[in-house]
C-alpha cells in the first residue's frame, strides 16, 4: 500500500519535474500517467501488484473533486453580470461536445471495423 502510493507519487513528481523543466503545458500528473503506463507495459507484474491501490483511489475519484467544487460557491462572484449567459453557454457547449465526441467515435469505429461494443 505505502509502496504503491510511493510509486504513484514518484511518477507524479517525475511528471511535474519534466513538465516544469521543459515548460510543457501538459500537467505533471498526466505525464506521470504516461510514464507509469510505459512501466506497466514493460513489467505487467507491477500492474497487478498496484491494482488494489489504484482501484481504491479511482473508486472514489468523485470525492477528490469536492474541495474544488466548494471553491466554486466561494468564487461565484467572479461571474459578475454574465452569470446566466456563462451557465447557458456552458450547459449547451458541454452537451454539444459530448454528442460530437460520441458520434465521431461511433462513426469512425464503424468505418475502421472497430465495431460497436454495445451491451445487448
Amino acid at each position: 500500500m505505502i509502496r504503491n502510493i510511493s510509486v504513484l507519487l514518484v511518477f507524479q513528481l517525475a511528471g511535474e519535474s519534466i513538465a516544469r523543466g521543459l515548460g510543457l503545458s501538459i500537467p505533471g500528473p498526466v505525464l506521470g500517467l504516461a510514464g507509469l503506463f510505459v512501466l506497466f507495459l514493460a513489467r505487467p507484474a507491477i500492474a497487478d501488484g498496484m491494482r488494489t491501490t489504484c482501484q481504491g483511489l479511482l473508486g472514489h475519484l468523485s470525492l477528490l473533486f469536492v474541495p474544488a467544487g466548494v471553491g466554486v460557491t466561494a468564487h461565484i462572484a467572479t461571474f459578475g453580470e454574465n452569470g446566466l449567459a456563462l451557465i447557458g453557454a456552458l450547459i449547451g457547449s458541454t452537451a454539444l461536445a459530448i454528442v460530437a465526441g460520441v458520434f465521431a467515435f461511433l462513426g469512425v469505429a464503424r468505418l475502421t471495423g472497430a465495431g460497436d461494443e454495445s451491451d445487448g
Binding site: F11, Q12, G15, P29, L36, L39, Q55, L57, L58
Partner: peptide, 8 residues
C-alpha cells in the same frame, strides 16, 4: 496520484 493511477 489518482490521475497517475489512471495508468492501470
Amino acid at each position: 496520484p489518482a490521475t497517475v493511477a489512471l495508468a492501470l
